[in-house]
Design a protein around this nucleic acid. Structure first.
Lengths: 342, 342
DNA sequence: TTGAAAGCGCTAACAG
DNA sequence: CTGTTAGCGCTTTCAA
């Protein structure tokens, strides 16, 4: 009877036996080839190739006490258009630093009581936390053990100094509102707000409010309603608004996805953009330039955010110094949906 | 001197000591709680909670010889709009079967000589292969070891019987072309083809060709050019076409992303859609319905594809019987960009 | 119902 | 330059 069932993948010992050396030597040609005599090395490498040997990650992790994995914890992966660029950036950063990416979105799956998820200290070297899928308590617990963490699109709970990357949301929204007021002379600007509790949403609305205040335009609460960063929600809200006889000169959607929903509602109601109702968004999702008319919006560098977050995390894992906060600039992108002719 | 630096996460032995039992017993309350006396169990559970103990995945993997991880191997994560729905479906399937998702896209990172990637038998229980990021030889090697594999959007190399999920591409393209010919009476239909070597692209073009043939319309090679399933490529191609005086009554883009590129080129050239040039796509990406005019396209159930693939893989891993091929139906979605009034 | 002991596959001193 | 040895943290017989 053979020692191993034929189908079991080769181990380092199989390689060692095959090449007549010890397991330690095989390990060396894997991790420190120069410590091994060229001829031995060649022998071992041949055996590795013949046996199709790949070191079991679990065994290496166990021995090394690291996993070479970066975990991404995020809310449900939806159809949001800012998601692919962000993920692309994260992937890029991980690859650059030699980490694999472990993704876990919290939809459906129940977190364990402590608000803990399936990604954590037990299977990754560090976590990227997107928005707020885990509890502050869990964040705090991890941070206190100095487990490497980087937050995306949110700042840390009070008292913690977790590195994070966020957009210049307020400045972006302010610039956009200024544009609507100063260039187009609008006074009544409807605002499709993002979801409650979302930081991006909070700061964008603040930028809008500040601009109004700066121009001595009284805030009309009737002009602020929920867009929810979601097409469907924004579409429903806009339709209701229209039915109720919305009295506004323009709509500022807090993100492009909600702008799409509003556009759809406007189209259905037979309103032309921008003649009957100018509309602008925030994010500059890839498709926004394709709409007719192309959407005026604020560019938020999602890919860069992902990339930067991954880099920061990788550096933290390696013990290097890491900036504690990255504020990525936003930029006005004037196209035709606001009424500009470009 | 303490045995462990205070910061090291608790191990099963710490829990055992704390609750005055053996490690084996702790392991039992983790995996087979009923084998442990209720009181002991309670004791252990308390210790687990106090110590914030979570079993190290690597150690479990090593001991169990499985990882509870499903790997997704894909080409570069881009801005393609079909990607989020597909990933959403995959996530859903993984969650349902209790697997974590490991993602690896092959852009940038060099595969090792054998065409092997960082995801494989050594760190996952099975692989979802999207398109063709790894070599046929590697696919064959894995399949021969009966390592669980499921292919997405491609069929297996000749001779292998790897389960796969694909769209009814040919039928979809055929239906669309039929529509253009029969309902709109078009004879000269330009086709923006997908990338060479891509199976979706191949079958879609075949559907187009078959429809022409069925209607006795001679194929004009000048009417087929590369759209590459990519906005930029399609935009450039369409612009060139227009410059060269494209003589067509409509454009059929092999996917929605390339339709977007064509639309952009058309817009720039001052052509109205559909009056001056009707255009249709394939996929029904989420934004297609938002364009003005909304894009007529073929709906390909991307989320379902991802979900189904994940399920099939999970079932294969568990040793259950698995269908060898899932052919997902496609469906005509008539909107206004083809000239229909809906 | 519980504990002791061996083993999963790899790495890292320490000798030689 | 290479082999021996002792873990890494968990699971799983086998006995008691």
């Amino acid at each position: 009877m053979m020692k191993r069932s034929a189908n079991h993948p080769a181990t380092i010992h199989d390689v060692a036996r095959r090449s007549g050396v010890s397991a330690a030597t095989v390990s060396r040609v894997l991790n420190n080839p120069d410590l091994v005599a060229p001829q031995t090395r060649a022998l071992v490498q041949a055996a590795i190739a013949e046996l199709n040997f790949v070191p079991r990650a679990a065994a290496q992790n166990l021995s090394n006490r690291r996993t070479n994995v970066i975990g991404l914890l995020m809310v449900e992966i939806g159809w949001d258009n800012f998601f692919p660029p962000m993920l692309h950036g994260i992937e890029k950063g991980c690859v650059e630093y030699g980490y694999d990416l472990f993704i876990h979105s919290t939809h459906l799956r129940s977190l364990v009581p402590g608000g803990r998820s399936s990604l954590g200290e037990h299977n990754t070297d560090g976590l990227l936390v997107f928005l707020n899928p885990i509890s502050d308590a869990e964040l705090e617990r991890l941070d206190h053990k100095s487990f490497p963490l980087v937050l995306l699109h949110r700042s840390p709970p009070a008292g913690l100094e977790i590195p994070h990357v966020v957009f210049e949301n307020k400045a972006g929204a302010r610039k956009m509102t200024d544009h609507l007021i100063e260039v187009h002379g609008f006074q009544r600007i409807a605002f499709l707000a993002g979801p409650a509790g979302n930081e991006d949403a909070y700061w964008r609305e603040l930028g809008y409010r500040e601009s109004l205040a700066a121009h001595d335009i009284p805030l009309d609460p009737a002009l602020i309603r929920l867009g929810g960063f979601a097409e469907e929600i924004a579409e429903a809200t806009t339709a209701e608004w229209l039915n109720a006889g919305l009295d506004a000169q323009a709509i500022f959607a807090a993100d492009d996805d909600s702008a799409y929903g509003a556009i759809h509602a406007l189209n259905k109601a037979g309103k032309r953009i921008p003649e009957d109702m100018p509309i602008v968004g925030f994010d500059d999702s890839p498709v926004s330039r394709l709409l007719s008319p192309p959407l005026t919006t604020v560019r938020a560098p999602s890919e860069q955010a992902g990339y930067k977050a991954a880099r920061m995390l990788a550096q933290r894992i390696r013990g290097g110094p890491v900036e504690t906060k990255a504020l990525l600039p936003t930029e006005l992108v004037i196209r035709r949906s606001c009424g500009c002719v470009v």
